[in-house]
Design a protein around this nucleic acid. Structure first.
Lengths: 76, 76
DNA sequence: TTAAACTATACCTGTTAGGGTATAAAATAG
DNA sequence: CTATTTTATACCCTAACAGGTATAGTTTAA
């Protein structure tokens, strides 16, 4: 299992839980627009907001090594 | 080996390379104040700025599991 | 001790992230 | 096809991030 980009990770986890973007935004306590920017991969998002979302999945932001299977993320 | 918080991780890596906060800020292309807030653990930092720093160490921000450090992280 | 280097805190300011809303597009169901 | 649900794009506004700088505090070396 290779490592997903954060935006793909969120999208996948959200769908795995059968949530819409609206539902996720409500559960996470962030705006709907934020969820959309997050899943689109906007790079300048604030960490605390992203963590509010990741926490619902049992995850958080952390430092991970570059390069490791970075080329494939969706086709795994 | 516990996973370090991002702020501790940055501080440790910086010192391991023998860099000052000023030098790191210059290398990363971010402000000195940002480096200080990063190492102090300010939660609302922007991901792209943090990634500019982590990249110098060969790392980037990613989604990692909460708390249970020991469960799966050592596969290689 | 002194002096230098490094780090922490405070202030001011421009830029922009994020919220909210409306509309449009796309996917999904009947 | 139509109707509904979900997602994408655009606009305005406020709050605050990040930069720069000055100053104060801390650590380190001689």
């Amino acid at each position: 299992m290779d490592r997903l980009e954060i935006n793909q990770f969120v999208k996948q986890k959200r769908k795995a839980l059968g949530l819409t973007q609206v539902e996720l935004s409500l559960k996470a306590g962030v705006g709907l627009r934020f969820i959309r920017e997050l899943e689109k991969g906007k790079p300048s998002l604030q960490m605390n907001k992203v963590n509010q979302v990741l926490k619902l999945f049992g995850y958080e932001l952390g430092a991970v090594q570059l390069d490791r299977e970075k080329l494939i993320d969706e086709a795994g």
